[in-house]
Simulated scan of single mutants.
Amino acid sequence: MLRAIFLTALMASPVLADVTSPSGKTVECYCTDKQRNRVELGETVCLQVDGRMFMAQCQMSLNVPMWREVQKGCLSSSLDGGDNLSEPGGINPKI
């Protein structure tokens, strides 16, 4: 019974991201973005593929780093073209 609990706990633990090569060297695993910048496992970025934009997370699949879609669309912020934040306009100077 104790052995079954130990094996279950072992299977539920997170898998380490580093891979050991046959020569015994540790190989770092990471993804790359469009500009070939390194993106660590677990990081989430906005990707644009074939005109479609989505949030993707760098994950491992069968010992290979890959991008997995985690949300449709991308998080963004923008200002309406009519807003001019450099001019206070509606602020009461007596406050």
Rank of each mutant, 00 (worst) to 15 (best):
M1S: 14
M1L: 12
F6V: 15
L7V: 04
A9W: 00
L10P: 04
L10F: 07
M11K: 02
M11P: 02
S13Y: 11
S13H: 10
V15G: 11
T20P: 05
S21P: 00
P22R: 00
S23T: 09
K25D: 11
V27T: 07
V27K: 10
C29V: 15
Y30N: 06
C31M: 09
D33E: 10
D33S: 08
Q35C: 07
Q35A: 13
R38Y: 04
V39Y: 07
E40Q: 12
L41K: 08
L41D: 06
G42D: 06
Q48D: 14
Q48V: 15
R52I: 11
Q57G: 12
Q57F: 06
C58A: 09
Q59G: 05
S61A: 09
S61N: 07
L62I: 02
L62S: 07
L62V: 00
M66N: 12
W67A: 07
W67F: 05
R68F: 10
R68K: 15
E69R: 11
V70T: 13
V70G: 12
Q71I: 08
Q71M: 14
G73W: 01
G73S: 06
L75I: 05
L75H: 03
S77I: 08
S77M: 04
S77Q: 05
S78L: 03
S78R: 03
L79S: 13
G81W: 01
L85C: 03
P88W: 03
G90Y: 02
I91A: 11
N92M: 09
P93M: 01
I95P: 01
